[in-house]
Write a protein that binds this DNA or RNA. Structure first.
Lengths: 209, 209
DNA sequence: GCGTTTCGGTACACTGACGTATCGGAAGAC
DNA sequence: GTCTTCCGATACGTCAGTGTACCGAAACGC
């Protein structure tokens, strides 16, 4: 599963590295934290080394370079904030999604901001960012909409359905610039109920409960 | 008007600088182009100097440092893409806005991407970015909504009205990450008609013509 | 226990960018 | 036409980050 053979499990076999998977995860979380704090350009190998109390040599031995380390760190996070949601109604699903995104926005929004520009310049990084943070949530949202269509809650050709995920991701990234505030659960819930429900033709009173 | 007295008009008065306002504008457009191409962190004074065929000394004499140069460049652009729009109906205004944003997205979207993270770390830069690119368009969109309320097209307490600008700015920034494509006029028009119109309760056939 | 391996830490060369200083030369003032 | 001023260019010192090389020491295999 790991893309680096040098990070190996503690089996009886070769066992040539003392970097256990747990230790590797420490590196990854340090990388992600530093990304959130200062952004991709300001992330330094020295910074990662000092925060994880290891030598730069270890980082270069295991990952080779800064872009590879960041990609590996992203691959280790595969957040599935929304994939478990299935309340039985689209309105309920979207409310839950707003709550979940809002709750996790302290982690994911800064990461997005930190990486979005760098990702648009490096295909490797864009791919890793999409796989780690974007596609899983996108798939979950699309699944909500698809289930709603199958249940007949919304018509299959509802033109607003295409834009549900773009809007959620969008306002999440727009609010910090517009109002200098993170898009929290309350804001996202209000947005979902005020803008997405009517666009989809959903009855706001239908909570799925 | 200019925030830098050292860049003076060609009046008969002191005239101590050979940097005419036109020359200053050349510097600013070079800065903005480089920002779009490579982002804020990768923007270098040497890069600006070589592109404008001037010495670094000139840049430091006039603007002092890279952040100040970027802020000055932003102040020089005050785009008013949407402020002139007034078709007489909200639907028409929003269609026009989608067209205008789509037409200018080749210029403004990359700038946004390049500056959004840097802006969230530097209050000066955030302020300049908001004044140059965000607030003018935000004001124009709010004015459209306000006019529609005064005309009675939408109720004054329409809950979706609050999110119009956030939605437009949002999808503009979300699409490159979701679909690896710039949000062009066609996409934005489809979005406005499919998502924003129904959310506001507008009749899509009402074009204001 | 002993040898091997790899980690953590430091020192090092190299690069790139910032910001300063200096200088020749051209444009403008008079 | 001369003199002053400021531009464009370059060289320089400084600093920060990359990636490499090396070394002592701790952990693991046997």
């Amino acid at each position: 599963m790991s893309s680096h053979d040098s990070v190996q499990e503690q089996a009886h076999a070769p066992r040539r590295s003392k970097i256990t998977p747990e230790r590797a995860q420490e590196f990854y979380t340090a990388v992600l934290d530093l990304l959130r704090e200062s952004g991709y350009e300001s992330l330094t190998m020295e910074g990662v080394a000092s925060r994880t109390r290891c030598g730069k040599s270890t980082l270069y031995r295991q990952w080779g370079s800064k872009p590879e380390l960041v990609v590996a760190a992203l691959h280790s996070t595969r957040r599935m904030l929304l994939s478990h949601i299935d309340t039985g109604s689209l309105a309920g699903d979207l409310r839950e999604a707003a709550q979940a995104i809002g709750a996790g926005s302290g982690r994911d929004t800064p990461l997005m901001h930190a990486l979005s520009h760098a990702a648009l310049q490096s295909p490797e990084l864009l791919c890793a960012l999409r796989e780690a943070l974007i596609l899983p949530e996108l798939a979950a949202l699309d699944a909500m909409v698809r289930r709603a269509m199958e249940r007949g809650e919304i018509p299959r050709d509802n033109p607003a359905a295409e834009f549900v995920s773009a809007q959620l991701l969008g306002v999440m990234r727009a609010r910090p610039l517009l109002e200098a505030k993170i898009a929290d659960a309350a804001y996202l819930t209000r947005f979902v109920e005020s803008a997405i429900f009517p666009a989809l033709g959903l009855d706001p009173a239908d909570t799925g409960s």
